[in-house]
């Protein structure tokens, strides 16, 4: 009998260290499933960030290097120049990508580096224990904005898709979410399109995945999933900002 569903062998046989309800596991598995389905697992090289997912090589069965904080796009560009046919991607959180790595992400987009970036936006610093991120929402509490982020002291949360899509060579920019089955199916399609952009050599591909961090949000996982819908998506609207004809 033909199996209707199998757990991807691209995930290593290891229990993750991620908290209950964390979106990293879903994101990891979607990327691995897409690479297997595309036949690109063997040529994939991942650059992991500083953050909870720094040791993603424990779970993803692809060649991987841990980047200095924020520098993943430059590291990935160096790798891609050496292995132009590789499926090279960065996997970065909001502190890594939007705060300390803001310059690298913009210039990789500007140069049209032929790599993919998967941006896990959970609006908080996870690994260091819940500090404010550039994407922390107004009113949202974090350990470094204990009364909630306010405009006067902390400014506005950064919308990275909207910023990246101003670069002409960032040819594919999409924001998806990982909080419902329907959103997860859309996210998988977006990840696939990003790798297709790279395969066709079209330019830089950027996928933002709105994610939950129940532990540092102080919520039960189910509540955190609802919070993505209720609080994050209104400020970070889902959808394609740019998509080349070739991968539509």
């Amino acid at each position: 009998m033909k199996p209707v569903f199998e757990y991807t062998n691209a995930m290593r046989d290891k229990i993750t260290h991620y908290c209950p309800g964390c979106s990293h596991g879903v994101a990891h598995r979607l990327i691995m499933e897409v690479l297997v389905e595309r036949g690109e697992l063997g040529k994939a090289i991942c650059v992991s960030p500083v953050g909870c997912s720094i040791t993603a090589h424990q779970y993803m069965n692809v060649d991987m290097i841990e980047s200095p904080h924020g520098r993943a796009p430059a590291v990935a560009a160096g790798i891609k120049r050496v292995h132009p046919k590789g499926a090279v991607f960065t996997y970065q959180g909001d502190g890594d990508l939007a705060s300390i790595g803001g310059n690298e992400i913009l210039h990789s987009a500007e140069r049209g580096e032929n790599i993919c970036t998967f941006f896990i936006n959970n609006a908080i610093y996870g690994m260091t224990g819940g500090q404010m991120a550039p994407t922390t929402l107004i009113g949202m509490k974090a350990t470094t904005c204990p009364a909630g982020r306010d405009l006067d002291n902390y400014g506005m949360p950064m919308r990275m898709c909207e910023i990246v899509q101003t670069m002409d060579l960032a040819v594919y920019v999409e924001r998806v979410a990982l909080n419902t089955p329907a959103h997860i199916r859309q996210a998988k399609k977006a990840i696939n399109r990003a790798f297709e952009v790279q395969k066709q050599g079209l330019g830089y591909a950027f996928v933002e995945l709105l994610s939950a961090c129940p532990t540092n949000w102080g919520m039960q996982p189910a509540k955190a999933m609802e919070w993505v819908d209720k609080s994050m998506i209104p400020y970070y609207p889902l959808g394609q900002f740019r998509c080349p004809e070739e991968v539509k």
Binding site: R71, A77, G78
Partner: peptide, 10 residues
């Protein structure tokens, strides 16, 4: 960081 990547790539 480019160096770090290119050197890691061999």
């Amino acid at each position: 960081s480019f160096i770090y990547g290119a050197a890691a790539a061999g």
